[in-house]
Design a protein around this nucleic acid. Structure first.
Length: 420
RNA sequence: GGAUGGGUGGCUGAGUGGUCUAAAGCAACAGUCUUGAAAACUGUCGCCCUCGCAAGGGGGCCGUGAGUUCGAAUCUCACCCCAUCCGCCA
């Protein structure tokens, strides 16, 4: 959420931001409603002043006068109630619109509508060359009994999978390695609840949007698609100690995504599943653009270095305006090389929000002057499983169908090769 | 799932319809005293919105939301959360 005062004073900037994000938003309509809200509020407060003053007189007045005053107050009260009713309606529209105002993308964000227009800003590693015809991860993993899609769909349905044997072991190896890797960079590991109240999804700005994307419980709670959601809710309505900044959490949780409307996309394999696991970097810091930018590069670099340590070729893209979420100021995606597909596939996403999320969550701290300010928030994927297996398996396959294991993972897996 | 008790400022805690502008204590901050500190004393001590150049004024906030009343922390209803007991359970 943006500050309504900021919106009023910078409506052209807000409108231009929406345009850049390819989001339809009528700033003037919001300001018109805000005018109404302010007028009503002023009128209501004036009436309340009178009410407060007269109420005080009631108890001092003698009985005859008292009845008279009370009678006259009834008129005022009826007016007041009518206005309060109107204000309630106006507030509903106002809040609704306020939740839809997109955050303003950074100057450096390229123009563009879809991910096709994201800008490659870095390429690391040479594209894997094979002296044989490479296989895809589905075939490789199925042959090695690392995954079972048939029984996955039998038990869960579309996009269901079982990770079995070395598929499961490799997942544990990655988690353990990632825990150590990110833990040594100052991240506190957290296992959060992933069943969350919907308010948390509004806080992170995943909502308003497509509720269809979420699995809901019979109690009206949602299964979150990322640990970012509960971790941002963690400090809701709190005043943080600025001395602790930057606060760095490594969330580990299952992630649930219905992928509604994505039925024809990425049908095969472990690329797009309903249920997966993810370690996520979540950072809170002081309200400084420079600090946000610095930490944004830092958490993205963390993930790049993690991927580099595994030895998987990747590139990093700077997401274009149209590919940014409502609250995001700027975003990098890291995409890993998938040999069989002959292209890079997203594995990580690093974004910063300024105070867009913390304003919704009411997460504040005291600055040097003792003033309460909204903190800044950022997040970046640390590592998602099993999606990482797609690139890992395909890039490190050998002619006989066995898989070479990156050195850093060997001590966690207990072997250097996965073979039949 | 059932029963009971409870949610008040940074913390403890008083307050059951009208000087509540929320007592008191603790903590914090400033000052006096002191070589310095502690103690003692004095003072300050919430958040949000709004009007104003400012000084300052107005409104709201006692878990959340509705309601009753001229007037609600206080009464009514719903919901959320916490504690304890029973039941169930990895």
């Amino acid at each position: 959420m943006l500050d309504i005062k900021f919106i009023r004073e910078n409506k052209d900037v807000v409108a231009a931001g929406a345009t850049k994000k390819h989001v339809k938003f009528d700033v003037d309509a919001l300001i018109a409603i805000d005018d109404k809200r302010r007028d009503l509020l002023a009128s209501i407060e004036k009436k309340r002043t009178e009410q407060n003053t007269v109420s005080e007189q009631v108890q001092k007045a003698d009985p005859a006068e008292r009845t008279k005053i009370i009678e006259s107050m009834k008129l005022l009260k009826a007016d007041l109630q009518k206005e309060e009713e109107t204000l309630k309606d106006v507030m509903k529209d106002w809040q609704n619109l306020m939740l839809q105002v997109p955050n303003i993308p950074d100057m450096s964000v390229p123009d563009g509508d879809t991910d096709a227009e994201n800008k490659e800003i870095k390429v690391w590693g040479d594209i894997t060359k094979f002296a044989f015809e490479p296989k895809d991860h589905v075939e490789l993993m199925t042959t090695l009994k690392m995954v079972d899609f048939e029984r996955g769909s039998k038990v869960h349905g579309f996009r269901g999978y079982f990770l079995t044997g070395d598929g499961a072991r490799l997942s544990f190896a990655i988690w353990n390695y990632a825990l150590e890797f990110f833990g040594s960079r100052g991240f506190t590991p957290v296992i959060p609840p992933i069943i969350v109240r919907k308010a948390n999804l509004y806080g992170t700005a995943h909502l308003p949007g497509d509720v269809e994307d979420y699995y809901m419980t019979q109690d009206g709670d949602a299964l979150a698609g990322t640990a970012e959601v509960p971790l941002m809710g963690y400090h809701a309505d709190e005043t943080l100690d600025a001395a602790q900044f930057p606060i760095k959490y490594l969330g580990f949780s299952p992630c649930y995504r219905r992928e509604a409307g994505a039925h024809s996309k990425d049908v095969k394999g472990l690329i797009r599943v309903h249920e997966f696991y993810k370690m996520e970097q979540v950072v809170l810091c002081e309200a400084s653009h420079e600090t946000s930018v610095k930490l944004h590069d830092e958490i993205n670099r963390n993930t790049e270095e993690f991927i580099e340590s595994l030895g998987i070729p990747y590139h990093t893209v700077l997401n274009c305006g149209g590919d940014l979420g409502l609250g995001q100021v700027k975003k990098y995606d890291i995409e890993l090389w998938v040999p069989k597909e002959g292209k890079y596939r997203e594995i990580s996403s690093a974004s910063y929000f300024h105070d867009f999320q913390t304003r919704r969550f009411n997460t504040r701290y005291r600055d040097a002057e003792g003033k309460l300010r909204y903190a800044h928030s950022l997040n970046c994927t640390a590592i998602p499983t099993p999606r990482i297996l797609v690139s890992l398996i395909e890039n490190f396959q050998q002619a006989d169908g066995s898989i070479r294991i990156p050195e850093v993972l060997q001590k966690y897996l207990g072997k250097a090769v996965i073979a039949k």
